[in-house]
Design a protein around this nucleic acid. Structure first.
Length: 391
RNA sequence: GGGGUCGUGGUGUAGCCUGGUUUAACACAUCUCCCUGUCACGGAGAAGACCGCGGGUUCAAAUCCCGUCGACCCCG
């Protein structure tokens, strides 16, 4: 399923190829987020144009609305949303933690109220596998418990125990529902484990040992980007990544900014997902080779440059910052679409540049050149992430 | 020609009757900042009106009185 192509010699970065029922993913890869069966504002063909090979969708949202049975009846998620490539579905553990107004976690599962209509739902590890099976996901995630940054040690320890117990049930149930060697399919459906443990190295270690002892096809680091300082998140990811089997795909959930991704790639992470390119696209923040720019800033009101003079995306070929700013400020759909498109294109280009740099054995140098901080507080200050790679 | 209603930041309004607790309030828009397994959501902060104009009464006027200009309505 997962084949490592090239291991970087100065860092833990590697390129690889992950095969799924709906096709191959070249890693390191970024998955645009399509929570509600849509990568917001973008069509599948636009995603392909950006270079996206895999997208992420969501168990929680789709189970709440319109319901997995509904999508199954219409031919599964791929057909429903007209996306032919691989889909990874998140389990809903994070959403229960971040969205549900009321939730009660117990050993059997988690009882919560939908943030949409207030209906109560009960998610168990088995139910979450059922939902993802009905959706027709290529990569399934098991139900986990994701504690917040302010959670106490006891609470985190409990969540690690629970996540492991649920992972065991998930693995058992997955085995019974997905036969190995599913006949004519190009590749079997995959199932990844999730490591928790908050900001405690001891608990991260324990979670990693417990989860990696189970027969998963890949491993994810969860529970980061929940409000912790950036450096602490890096520290935990750097601590946890080496505890994961070297020959299996590693997925850092919910991360991140371009420099977060470069950092994590150097730690040996293969998969990423993050809402930033699309969410920020809708807010008028554009990732550029010169750093992030906020189109809402008055300074771009009459700026005739494209979002990023070095970018080859359709939005940059056609539109000025001034025009896109005007659209964004008027909440014009075209503006939301174009900046989202540009941002996804930027991320995809970043990933292909990363793969190319690793393949050529120059990732360390590449990262130094491109990995300077780029976050909101740095925009406009000359940070350079997306400068095109002189090869 | 007669009568009436209204005129308060960019926009829409509140306050006026019962003058002082008003550094003139609110919403949207504007300008900064924030958002990492989604949020066209939401949060933090800033700037912006000498209350149409002129005069009067009063210790004190967005508030009461007179005039004037403008918008709208009714009657001729």
């Amino acid at each position: 399923m997962f084949q490592i192509i090239k291991q970087d010699n100065s860092t833990s970065a590697r390129t690889g190829r992950l095969t799924t029922p709906h096709g191959v993913i070249d890693t390191p890869a970024f998955m645009p987020v399509g929570t509600e069966a849509a990568v917001k504002t973008l069509t599948p063909s636009e995603l392909k144009e950006c270079g996206a090979q895999v997208i992420l969708s969501n168990t929680y949202h789709l189970a709440v609305k319109p319901g997995e049975k509904f999508i199954e009846e219409l031919g599964g998620l791929h057909r429903f949303m007209s996306w032919e490539g691989p889909i990874l579905t998140d389990s809903g553990g994070y959403q229960v933690f971040s969205l549900a107004p009321l939730r009660k976690v117990e050993d059997a599962g988690v009882l919560f109220q939908s943030h949409i209509d207030g209906k109560t739902h009960f998610f168990t590890p088995e139910r979450v596998i059922d939902i993802q099976k009905a959706l027709g996901s290529d990569i399934l995630m098991p139900l986990d418990e994701c504690p917040g940054y302010n959670a106490g040690e006891k609470e985190i320890e409990k969540s690690v125990e629970r996540t492991t117990a649920w992972a065991k049930r998930s693995v058992d149930y997955f085995r019974r529902n997905f036969d190995v060697g599913e006949g004519l399919k190009p590749a079997p459906t995959l199932h990844f484990g999730i490591i928790q443990g908050g900001m405690s190295q001891e608990l991260r270690e324990r979670s990693a040992v417990e989860i990696t002892s189970l027969p998963f096809d890949g491993f994810a680091i969860g529970g980061l980007s929940v409000g912790e300082p950036k450096e602490l998140g890096y520290e935990i990811a750097a601590f946890t990544a080496p505890k994961l089997p070297i020959n299996q795909p590693r997925y850092l959930m919910g991360i991140g900014t371009p420099e977060d991704i470069l950092e994590a790639v150097s730690q040996g992470i293969d998969l990423f997902d993050c809402v930033l390119p699309t969410r920020y696209g809708r807010y008028g923040y554009a990732f550029t080779s010169g750093g992030m720019i906020s189109l809402r800033d008055a300074r771009y009101a009459k700026d005739t440059l494209p979002l990023d003079p070095e970018c080859h995306c359709g939005a940059c070929q056609s539109f000025s910052r001034a025009y896109l700013r005007f659209l964004i400020k008027g909440r014009e759909i075209l503006g939301l679409r174009m900046v989202s498109f540009h941002n996804v294109y930027f991320y995809m280009r970043l990933m292909s540049d990363v793969r190319e740099a690793i393949a050529k054995g120059i990732f360390g140098e590449f990262r130094k050149r491109r990995g300077r901080p780029m976050c909101l507080s740095n925009h406009g200050k000359g940070a350079r992430i997306g400068a095109s790679l002189p090869v």
